[in-house]
Amino acid sequence: MGDGAFRQWIRLIEFCAENRTSGSLEGMAAEDIELAVDFEGEPGAFIEALVKCKLLDRDEAGVFSLHDWASNQPWLCNFAERSRRARSAAQARWNATSAANSDFETKREATVSRLRNMS
C-alpha cells in the first residue's frame, strides 16, 4: 500500500474524531470511507488492508468500525453523553438565574409600589 496508506489511516482516525465519535462508520460503504480519506488506489484495497491488519472491524451487518476505538478513545466515545449533560447543566443554571432575576424583579416592583403608596 505504500507510505500513503499510513496518511490515509491517520485521516480516517481524524475523520472519526470529528464526525463519528463512536468509531462506528455505520451507513458508510467501503467506497465512502475511501472517499472520506482521499484514497486514490484500487477501490476496496484500503479497506481490505485495514481489515486484514485488524485496524478496522466489520460486524455481522457489514458495518465498519475502528478497532478498539472505545478503549483507545474514551473521551471521544462519550462525547454525546458529555454534551447532553453539559446542556442540561447549562439549562439548569439558566433556569436558576432566570428564576432569581424574576424573584428580584417581583420584589423590586413590590418595593417601588410601597414607596409610591407612602407618598
Results as ranks from 00 to 15, higher is better:
residue 10 I to F: 13
residue 11 R to D: 15
residue 13 I to A: 02
residue 15 F to Y: 15
residue 15 F to H: 14
residue 17 A to S: 11
residue 18 E to Q: 14
residue 20 R to A: 09
residue 23 G to C: 06
residue 23 G to N: 04
residue 24 S to M: 09
residue 24 S to K: 11
residue 25 L to A: 07
residue 25 L to W: 05
residue 27 G to I: 05
residue 29 A to D: 13
residue 31 E to T: 08
residue 31 E to D: 14
residue 32 D to Y: 06
residue 33 I to E: 12
residue 36 A to V: 05
residue 36 A to P: 02
residue 37 V to L: 12
residue 38 D to G: 08
residue 39 F to I: 00
residue 40 E to M: 08
residue 41 G to W: 09
residue 43 P to K: 09
residue 44 G to S: 08
residue 44 G to R: 11
residue 46 F to H: 08
residue 46 F to W: 12
residue 46 F to Q: 06
residue 47 I to Q: 04
residue 48 E to K: 15
residue 49 A to H: 01
residue 50 L to S: 03
residue 52 K to T: 09
residue 52 K to V: 00
residue 56 L to V: 03
residue 56 L to P: 00
residue 60 E to I: 02
residue 60 E to S: 11
residue 61 A to E: 15
residue 63 V to P: 03
residue 64 F to T: 01
residue 65 S to V: 01
residue 66 L to K: 01
residue 66 L to E: 02
residue 66 L to P: 00
residue 67 H to Y: 13
residue 72 N to E: 13
residue 73 Q to D: 01
residue 77 C to H: 12
residue 77 C to R: 10
residue 82 R to N: 13
residue 83 S to F: 13
residue 84 R to T: 04
residue 85 R to Y: 06
residue 87 R to E: 13
residue 88 S to N: 10
residue 91 Q to P: 00
residue 92 A to I: 04
residue 95 N to H: 04
residue 95 N to V: 03
residue 96 A to V: 01
residue 100 A to H: 05
residue 101 N to Y: 02
residue 101 N to P: 00
residue 102 S to E: 12
residue 105 E to I: 01
